[in-house]
Simulated scan of single mutants.
Amino acid sequence: MIEAAVRYAEERHWEVAAGSWLIEDDGPLRCSCGDPGCPAPGAHPTTRDWARKASAGPGVVRRWWTDNPLASVLLPTGRAFDAIDVPEIAGCLALARMERMGLQLGPVLAVPGGGAGTAGRGRRLVFLVLPGSLPKLPELLRRLGWGPGRLDLMGHGEGDWIVAPPTRVGTFGFAQWAREPTTLNRWLPEATELINPIAYACGREAPLSSPVS
């Protein structure tokens, strides 16, 4: 955890926040928050002012995980990046199509169905895009013919977060990189560049949904 958290801050200059953690003892696996019904056990902020405390300082980050090596690694959205979050099957379909099209892609995250806003939704793929994208998503989708709530597609922006590898989310599994952060994908794409193939893939996986007329 400490190596990953410091690397995000040091190499990508991403702000990092230390989240809750999993407690394993003689009883069942549980979240440090103490809520037996926690929707994201071991993978959510622990204080209301978590976003204000997030830091991209490697020394600060290292000290946090030295003090608590079990803390989950959270990345605030709406700062260095926003995120577009879709079901894993649709995300893989969109990712393959984007690669064939030669589109510039940023890092892509694969998360279990227990991260921010994803409890009970199954595994997800999360595409990192330039910040400021979240407010544009409804209009971008409308132009493509998709009304509000028609697609299983979520945006994460200011005030939200994503769970970063190698964080484990309860019994759901571990966050992993489908496309790791590298020097080749340091420059993130605009949401407008990716939304067409992403919406198309989500539409294919939502047979009961139909474009607006």
Score class of each variant (00 low, 15 high):
Glu3Ile: 01
Ala5Pro: 14
Glu10Ala: 13
Glu10Ser: 13
Glu10Lys: 11
His13Trp: 03
His13Pro: 00
Ala18Gly: 14
Ala18His: 11
Leu22Pro: 04
Glu24Thr: 12
Asp25Gly: 13
Pro28Ala: 15
Pro28Gln: 12
Leu29Asp: 10
Ser32Arg: 08
Cys33Arg: 10
Asp35Val: 09
Pro39His: 10
Ala40Thr: 11
Pro41Val: 06
Pro41Arg: 09
Gly42Ser: 07
Thr47Leu: 06
Arg48Cys: 00
Trp50Ser: 05
Ala54His: 13
Ala54Gly: 10
Ser55Thr: 08
Ala56His: 15
Arg63Tyr: 04
Thr66Ser: 14
Leu75Gly: 04
Leu75Asp: 04
Ala80Met: 02
Ala83Asn: 09
Asp85Gln: 08
Glu88Val: 12
Ala90Trp: 03
Gly91His: 02
Leu95Ser: 05
Gly102Leu: 09
Leu103Arg: 15
Leu103Thr: 12
Gly106Thr: 06
Val108Arg: 05
Leu109Tyr: 09
Ala110Val: 05
Ala110His: 15
Val111Leu: 09
Val111Gln: 10
Gly115Pro: 11
Ala116Val: 07
Arg123Cys: 03
Arg124Cys: 04
Leu125Thr: 04
Leu128Gly: 01
Leu128Asn: 01
Leu134Cys: 06
Glu139Leu: 13
Leu140Gln: 15
Arg143Cys: 02
Leu144Ser: 01
Gly147Ala: 11
Gly147Arg: 07
Pro148Cys: 05
Arg150Pro: 01
Leu151Ser: 03
Leu151Met: 01
Asp152Lys: 12
Leu153Asn: 10
Leu153Thr: 11
Met154His: 15
Gly157Met: 14
Gly159Ser: 10
Gly159Tyr: 12
Trp161Ile: 00
Ala164His: 02
Pro165Met: 01
Pro165Ile: 02
Pro166Asn: 03
Thr167Asp: 08
Thr171Pro: 02
Gly173Glu: 09
Thr182Pro: 09
Thr182His: 04
Asn185Ile: 03
Arg186Ser: 13
Ala191His: 02
Glu193Arg: 14
Glu193Ser: 15
Leu194Asp: 15
Leu194Ser: 13
Ile195Gly: 09
Ala199Ile: 12
Ala201Val: 01
Gly203Gln: 11
Arg204Gly: 06
Ser210Pro: 00
Ser213Trp: 09
Ser213Asp: 09
